[in-house]
Amino acid sequence: MKASSRAIVLAAVTVLSWSTVATAFKITLASMGVREMISVSVFSAFVVHAVWMTLSRSWGELSRLSAKMWLKFALLGLIAPVSYYFVLFEAYDHLPAQIAQPINYTWPIILSVLIAVIDRRPVSASGYAAMAVSLAGVALISLGGGVDGAISLTGIALAFASALLWALYWIVNDSLKSSVSETTSLFLTFFFGTIYLAAMSLLRPLGPIASDGLLAGCYIGIFEMGLPFICFGIALRTTDNPALVNQLCYLAPFLSLFFVALFVGETIMPSTYIGLILIVGGIICNRYLTARNRLQHT
């Protein structure tokens, strides 16, 4: 198989994996608590990344890391997976999946704002317009009339907080890219995440975990936190068209609605589809405008 074709296959695996996890979150939360869910899933992901470290022969890289780098990864592991997934799972516990997932998907917009603030680079008027389109989509989904019951404001705040945490994760992670491979970076974040969660479970023991909950948690660890990150990274490194690989990932939230309707039983509102189109459209426009501005200033 040609490298370009293999990259598309790996990107497709990534999209299919991420499109199922909103459904897995809701199903798993019905049978176990957030702490139990995150503990099982993060440990499962840690095992996946440890196996990949072995297959990619990356263990030797750990011995070359400075103490300062270890401390940075300790911070990264606290941001994600620990804080990010705690907040994200709580958001799903408070909201229908069709609302929690699109709001969480606004993280690229938040990332753009944070980078502009950190780099002290003003955002263009067109950039603000693109962000406004995405936020209009969020408002439409949140107000969305038709979803049974009142929408939890706490859940909406948690979903936005998860997007903020994920944006912060990528800022810190990006600062480490020149010093360590992506394989080692992912392993270390889940290594520290596992340590933090193990320490928390010693202070406050986990509740009972049924066998079906254990399997569901392992599924989340493998297909949300493990395999898709590995596949996506390989796809980007081996493709001759990275823009296409990135754009394929925008299919995930739309496929996710199909699985949520099929397996969770949520009736997907028209406002959800329209709002998600606005969110993704704003993100794509913002990325295009950002890339164009960078070219103009080089």
Rank of each mutant, 00 (worst) to 15 (best):
Gly217Thr: 10
Leu95Glu: 01
Gly282Tyr: 01
Val51Cys: 01
Glu182His: 04
Ile118Lys: 04
Leu262Gly: 01
Ala210Ile: 04
Ile109Cys: 15
Ser83Ile: 10
Val113Lys: 03
Leu111Trp: 09
Arg6Thr: 15
Ile220His: 12
Ala261Phe: 09
Thr238Glu: 10
Ala130Phe: 02
Leu251Thr: 08
Ala91Arg: 13
Gly193Trp: 07
Ser56Asn: 03
Asp93Lys: 14
Tyr128Cys: 06
Asn241Arg: 15
Arg121Ala: 11
Thr290Phe: 09
Leu295Ser: 11
Thr106Val: 12
Pro81Cys: 11
Ala30Trp: 06
Val42Arg: 03
Trp52Cys: 11
Arg120Met: 07
Ala139Tyr: 10
Phe223Pro: 00
Tyr84Gly: 06
Leu244Asp: 10
Leu164Asn: 13
Gln101Ser: 10
Tyr128Thr: 00
Ile141Glu: 05
Phe191Asp: 09
Ser256Met: 11
Ala136Asn: 12
Leu202Asp: 00
Cys249Gln: 09
Val21His: 02
Ile284Gly: 02
Ala199Phe: 13
Leu176Arg: 05
Ala235Gly: 04
Ala12Leu: 07
Ala67Tyr: 12
Asn286Gln: 15
Ala163Ile: 15
Cys231Arg: 03
Thr20Met: 05
Thr23Ser: 15
Ile171Ala: 07
Trp52Tyr: 15
Ser142Trp: 08
Gly146Asn: 08
Trp170Thr: 12
Ala235Cys: 01
Thr194Trp: 05
Met225Phe: 07
Val113Thr: 10
Val123Trp: 11
Ala163Cys: 14
Phe192Val: 08
Pro205Asp: 08
Leu29Phe: 02
Glu182Thr: 15
Tyr273Arg: 03
Ala161Gly: 04
Gly233Thr: 11
Tyr92Asp: 02
Val245Ile: 15
Pro96Asp: 13
Gln98Gly: 14
Pro122Trp: 06
Ser179Ala: 00
Leu295Trp: 03
Tyr128Ile: 00
Phe89Trp: 13
Ser124Phe: 13
Arg64Met: 05
Ile8Leu: 15
Ala167Arg: 03
Val117Asp: 12
Thr298Asp: 07
Arg121His: 08
Val147Met: 04
Leu255His: 03
Leu206Phe: 00
Pro108Phe: 11
Ala11Pro: 05
Ile110Ser: 04
Ala139Pro: 06
Thr20His: 01
Ser112Asp: 09
Leu88Thr: 06
Val113Ala: 15
Phe89Thr: 14
Pro253Asn: 09
Ala45Gln: 02
Ala3Cys: 00
Glu182Phe: 11
Thr23Val: 02
Ile151Cys: 03
Ile171Thr: 01
Ser124Ala: 12
Thr106Glu: 11
Ser4Pro: 04
Ser41His: 02
Lys68Ala: 14
Phe192Tyr: 14
Ile234Trp: 02
Gly282Met: 00
Ala130Gln: 04
Gly77Tyr: 04
Ala243Asp: 07
Gln296Pro: 05
Asn241Pro: 10
Thr194His: 05
Leu214Glu: 09
Gly155Asp: 14
Tyr105Lys: 10
Cys285Asn: 09
Asp240Ile: 11
Asp174Asn: 12
Pro208Glu: 02
Arg6Ala: 15
Arg237Asn: 12
Pro81Lys: 11
Phe43Arg: 04
